[in-house]
């Protein structure tokens, strides 16, 4: 556990610790203010660890979710900034490892990519795709709001279940059920229009 000398804690840190204590008691306004305050700090820590700027938002999101999950472990007598720093550093390292694993399997070859002939290229495909897209949009519009919301968040915006649950304020189970029902309904509607 990381400790901090109370003498060295500045007013910002004391305020954050107090906000986190309030959040533990259920104060949503204090929590929201604290999370907003954390974003630039997390980004700075991620940058120091070596996370590329275009992946900074991934670390921020991961750390915000970790704070939420771990909020009951924070001791308000300790430094919130030190607590956040350790979590942000670990999440940054996790992301760098992930990126490292991906890049070990992939390599950058823009010329080869440009020169690769697309054997399935078909000039009429664009028109067909537009038609399919219209049909899907029409079918989507007929879905009940909760089912549509599940499809939009999980499929169209490619959000994770956790992210979508946080954004839509629904439980993961409810989202899964709605997505399942929506996909079934969409399949039926699209088959009928074919």
């Amino acid at each position: 556990m990381i400790t901090a000398d109370p003498q060295t804690r500045n007013t910002d840190d004391l305020r954050r610790s107090a906000q986190m204590a309030a959040a533990q008691a259920g104060d949503r306004a204090a929590y929201e203010a604290l999370l907003r305050d954390c974003v630039p700090l997390i980004r700075a820590i991620a940058g120091r660890v070596g996370v590329p700027p275009d992946r900074g938002d991934d670390v921020v999101q991961d750390v915000l979710l970790t704070i939420h999950r771990a909020r009951q472990t924070f001791d308000p007598g300790r430094s919130f900034t030190a607590w956040l720093r350790v979590i942000a550093e670990r999440r940054s390292i996790d992301l760098l490892r992930q990126v490292g694993r991906h890049s070990a399997r992939e390599f950058h070859a823009p010329l080869a990519f440009e020169a690769y002939p697309d054997e399935g290229a078909d000039p009429t495909r664009g028109v067909e795709q537009a038609e399919v897209s219209d049909r899907v949009n029409d079918a989507l519009a007929t879905l009940p709001p909760r089912q549509r919301e599940a499809v939009e968040a999980l499929v169209l915006q490619e959000q994770s279940l956790t992210e979508a649950a946080a954004v839509t304020r629904r439980t993961k189970v409810a989202l899964k059920v709605n997505l399942h029902r929506a996909l079934k309904a969409l399949r039926g509607k699209l088959q009928r229009t074919e």
Binding site: A23, Q24, G26, L35, D57, Q72, E163
Partner: peptide, 21 residues
């Protein structure tokens, strides 16, 4: 506007009082 606004609002809305470990 922050790209994390929706997430932050969602987390704040999801906030329940917790017992400190």
């Amino acid at each position: 506007a922050s790209p994390h606004d929706a997430l932050i609002r969602g987390l704040a809305a999801d906030l329940q009082p917790v017992r400190r470990l």
